[in-house]
């Protein structure tokens, strides 16, 4: 699945990283706790989250993730988007809730486990 597919499946808006839309991703995770992302995630390229702060982007960067999807229609501020731009991370925002967003991607073939 590409980041562009994620955008389409989740009716998402792309806030930065248009240039990465054709990049391919194989797994994802969903969490509002960055502690858990840092501790349990391995090689998932996409993070879905309802948390909104700069640490979401830094956590994604530390984990070598390439795409962050903010759910429940959360719109990040310019500081967050700028940080993502510098880090080469695509940022999407979708009005879907966590359960639904994860479910749609999972049933479309994006698994939870790393390769």
């Amino acid at each position: 699945m590409t980041i562009n597919d994620i955008k389409n499946y989740l009716d998402a808006e792309v806030l930065c990283g248009e240039e990465f839309l054709e990049k391919e991703v194989f797994s994802a995770c969903g969490s509002d706790m960055m502690s858990d992302v840092l501790a349990y995630v391995k090689d998932q390229a996409v993070l879905l989250t309802g948390l909104m702060n700069t640490q979401v982007i830094r956590t994604a960067e530390m984990m070598d993730m390439i795409c962050v999807v903010f759910i429940r229609n959360k719109k990040p501020n310019e500081e967050i988007i700028e940080l993502a731009r510098e880090s080469g991370i695509a940022v999407l925002t979708s009005s879907k809730r966590m359960y639904e967003a994860c479910g749609i991607l999972y049933s479309s073939g994006l698994c939870g486990k790393a390769e």
């Binding site: 706790m33 502690s35 840092l38 948390l51 702060n53």
Partner: peptide
């Protein structure tokens, strides 16, 4: 509420 404090660090 900032996404930390799970005692995992």
């Amino acid at each position: 509420s900032l996404g930390f404090g799970a005692g995992m660090g």
